[in-house]
Nucleic acid binder design. Sequence first.
RNA 1: CGGGAUGUAGCGCAGCUUGGUUAGCGCACCUCGUUUGGGACGAGGGGGUCGCCGGUUCGAAUCCGGCCAUCCCGACCA
Length: 446
Amino acid sequence: MAKKPDLGVTPLSEDVSAWYNELVFKAELADRGPVKGTMVIRPYGFGVWELIQSQLDRRFKDTGHVNASFPLFIPMSYLEREAEHVEGFSPELAVVTHAGGKELEEPLVVRPTSETIIGEMYAKWISSYRDLPLLINQWANVVRWELRPRIFLRTTEFLWQEGHTAHATEPQAMEETLRMFDVYAEFARNVAAIPMVKGEKTPGERFAGAVRTYSIEGMMRDGKALQSGTSHYLGTNFARAFDMTYQDENNELQLCHTTSWGMSTRMIGAVILAHGDDQGLVLPPRLAPIQIVIVPIGRGEQGDAPRAKAHELADQLKAAGVRAHVDDRDASPGFKFNDWELKGVPLRVELGPRDLEAGQVLVAQRIGEVDDKGRAVKDTLSFEDFVASASDRLDAYHDQLLARAERFLADNRASVDDWDTFAAQVSTGFADALHCGEEPCEDDIK
RNA sequence: CGGGAUGUAGCGCAGCUUGGUUAGCGCACCUCGUUUGGGACGAGGGGGUCGCCGGUUCGAAUCCGGCCAUCCCGACCA
């Protein structure tokens, strides 16, 4: 079926940038804000973020962390206390110089990250080895005045979580750094269905102020890598700058060893780029605000019964923990099918008068077999079987997506001999380079 | 900050070379009617300081000058 030019999105293979931008807007994930580089995350996109948040947050809690909230404004002098940190961040700081109708005595930085203000507070809270480890996470917005913004991937303001922990010793802090690194990789795989390559950043790419920076990198559909989460061992750099010390068992004063780790709304961009296709978004079921959409067919009185049955099925699905939605809109079925494919909903169900009579539904999967017209091959299921199997189908769909992404990663990796070549291949363009340093990468994918 | 492009309705565009007074088209939107198993159809309708400032001219979307903004490709970055 020939697409009209104003329908759908530019094919991925034709122009990745155009495809990505059109998709973000047409799928109603986000819109541009009035200030350069800012974005409005629309309800559908925010729904994805909420699912990222809730599933990451559970993992943080399971590993002993608690949430707190620190101030948006940080005195400029705080950043200046850690030389590398301020040097790394100063080009992209937004600074408040006026407030309350007059010039401030000291400029305030809108946080680009919170190591400094959290360091200041931790120094007050920690005095004994009994206070350690201190394991706090915060969900927040941060601002970095980037030269070249790109929606979700690099916005001036973005949402993220930043974990900040303080430990007595280097081994303990390193253990934490790697633990959260693993949590990110596990989350990416089991929730976002994106297999990640794990590596350590080169000194030049390290977080400003870190001793070691670890990064998970996902393989996008255009063959480029995208940095999707980082975990830093900060050594005693910030502890020294903020006088974060504790008394050990021998009455001796020691510097804390700290870590920080973050994952941001860039993850939404990673999901788009890792799974999307020419039809639009492909959402992994565990991040899909709508996992199953039911499209009742038939209008007027003829549509009343299918619509009622659709709502009944949706209620049963919701009771089973599935995020289901009935598309009641006054539009043709074809329009709705294309619309939900653009929005990446994993499973679509059709329910018309004929199905109602036969006691069945037609189930189409967002990715999977297609017929010679390029349309999804649909399964026919009884109402009971459909409701009973919905969760399993979503799980199977996740596995299928993950397997596809793994094949894609393997195919792209197989074509290169060594990591330097691979890094060069994936480092062009907007995506972050998958850098494992000058030497071949030691910490490979599991 | 380099290189490239674009600013005309919510979105996508034409018109500009060769100035002419109601500024057009498609989609979207509103009303009515008919439709509905892969992007429905007809009729009617609403929506514009043509990015901004200045200049030329009887007259500027159109010509000239300046500015601004945005997007794309690099450098920086979650």
